[in-house]
Design a binder for these strands. Structure first.
Lengths: 214, 214
DNA sequence: GTCTATAATCTGATAGAC
DNA sequence: GTCTATCAGATTATAGAC
């Protein structure tokens, strides 16, 4: 079988350690603020080794942001798993919320990248995000045309879903302050998920009560 | 009268130019990515003059973020100008949206500061934002208790309003890509405002139709 | 108050021994 | 493949002439 050799394993493990550390450091300090030294320390490898695997800081950043982009689209899958708007939207919102909780650094990195003008992912936005966005927009339009939900602007609705879900990752420090300096517990987060689903689904004229509260 | 002298005027004008430029550069590049040189160039003054008015880069940053904080709370005023939940919430949402459009760099700077863990405004979050947040939470609770709106979690509602409105400033580059690489026109933005109001107010059981669409 | 020239520091990247 | 030592460049901050 084409299993990776021992050396390959070590290589992959090192690369992975570096990528995980880099995602966190970039998210906390921005591209310029992040230092190769800090990334190397967090990854537990000498700085020169980071340069061995990634020639430049920019190359490392691109690789990290690429992984985040791929992950972003994965959360979009639930949208297509049902033709019922309530099920599809609730599934999508929950998936985005879960993603924000499980990979907060990725969400923050995405946010900072967009805020900066998306220099590293402009191509991705055009080739991947835009087609996805327009297809989902059409789907929402068809639901509206058949009277399955209120006549809201699909663009505004999707923006609101993105903003509301990613907020729990991107602004978690602010949320913590307003939660008596404590991280949201699993129960609080689950409750927040319900609330976001309820307000948005109700807001577009859908019933939310019958959906599973997981 | 205690009018400022000519020198004072020049001083104020220079400081203002620097602050405006700094807000933009910090928002676009982050604290570390921003250079005093870039700020000086954008402000149209020599770099040494920036240091004349602001001893250090950190001091300049703190002053900028302080101004943004003050401005942030101003947009919160409409919330208190009515005891009718629909009027108060719609007014608040519109004020936040207008703020996002008129001062996008401030919104982005705020976002980046929170993402980084709010090192420069943690005190402000505790002393200013938290009391404001808790008072508004109580007001929402009382509206819910008297049956004026649905029983949603006030925390989740306020987070959703913040996220949805600030999204139009913070993620405008992404929105542009999805809008055929064009800035939102005034008409499009006004429409977006209506949509955000409609979805959220409907989402919490309020009537939006009678409100002015400005 | 304004500005040029420079000092002091930090950081990305590399050379070269192991 | 790994790591220490170091270089080259950029940037904050300041000294000192005007």
């Amino acid at each position: 079988m084409p299993k990776s050799s021992g050396k390959e394993k070590i290589r992959k493990a090192n690369i992975n350690r570096i990528l995980v550390a880099a995602e966190q450091v970039f998210a906390n300090s921005g591209f310029k603020g992040a230092t190769m030294d800090a990334i190397a320390n967090l990854a537990g490898v000498p700085k020169a080794n980071v340069h061995y695997y990634f020639a430049t800081k920019a190359a490392l950043y691109h690789r990290v942001i690429e992984d985040v982009c791929d992950h972003w689209l994965l959360a979009a899958l639930p949208f297509d798993q049902s033709d019922d708007p309530a099920t599809a939207l609730a599934g999508y919102i929950c998936a985005k919320m879960d993603q924000a909780r499980q990979r907060p650094f990725g969400s923050r990195l995405w946010a900072m990248e967009i805020i900066r003008g998306a220099p590293a992912i402009k191509g991705y936005l055009h080739t991947q995000l835009k087609p996805w966005f327009e297809a989902r927009t059409k789907k929402l339009d068809s639901w509206i045309a058949t009277g399955k939900m209120h006549a809201v602007d699909p663009h505004a609705l999707l923006y609101m879903i993105w903003a509301s879900t990613q907020h729990y990752a991107d602004f978690s420090h602010q949320i913590n302050v307003l939660n008596d300096d404590q991280d949201l517990s699993d129960e609080q987060f689950s409750h927040a998920k319900d609330q976001v689903c309820q307000i948005i689904l109700t807001g577009v004229g859908l019933q939310v009560d019958h959906l599973v509260r997981k």
